[in-house]
């Protein structure tokens, strides 16, 4: 490990942190609509402050169960094998829920 490696590592981390901070300051706490997209097309638009359940039908017959509860949106069940969408937890302005096998995204927008 050389000095240049350390310099590279620290500058990359610093830049990533600054960009993340700017994104967070711009977007966090400003969204109130849950937008569901399948294969890039808008599938549903739901208010974040009303509790709801929605069975999303993704591509290839796969489904994801979206739950909106207490101002938080998350996927509770899915038919995809990896369940990344379920493990992602709550969606927020910076973190969309993405299910690649079913091509489903759930994001919080204004």
């Amino acid at each position: 490990m050389r000095k240049s490696d350390l310099l590279l590592l620290s500058s990359v981390l610093a830049i990533a942190l600054i960009v993340f901070g700017i994104c967070a300051a711009l977007y966090l706490g400003k969204g109130e609509t849950v937008v569901v997209r399948v294969d890039g097309e808008e599938y549903a638009r739901l208010p974040l402050d009303e509790d709801a359940e929605l069975l999303i039908e993704g591509v290839n017959g796969g489904t994801n169960l979206l739950i909106i509860k207490d101002g938080k949106a998350y996927i509770s069940e899915a038919t995809c094998p990896d369940l990344v969408c379920v493990h992602t937890g709550h969606a927020d302005e910076l973190k969309s829920i993405v299910c690649l096998p079913n091509r489903v995204t759930v994001s919080i927008e204004k």
Partner: peptide
Amino acid sequence: AAIFLLDELRIGFYLPILIAVGAL
């Protein structure tokens, strides 16, 4: 690839997190 395939520019918000994690 994800931005292109899902046609969802907002995934780009992952970029700073993934760059930091990638560095580590």
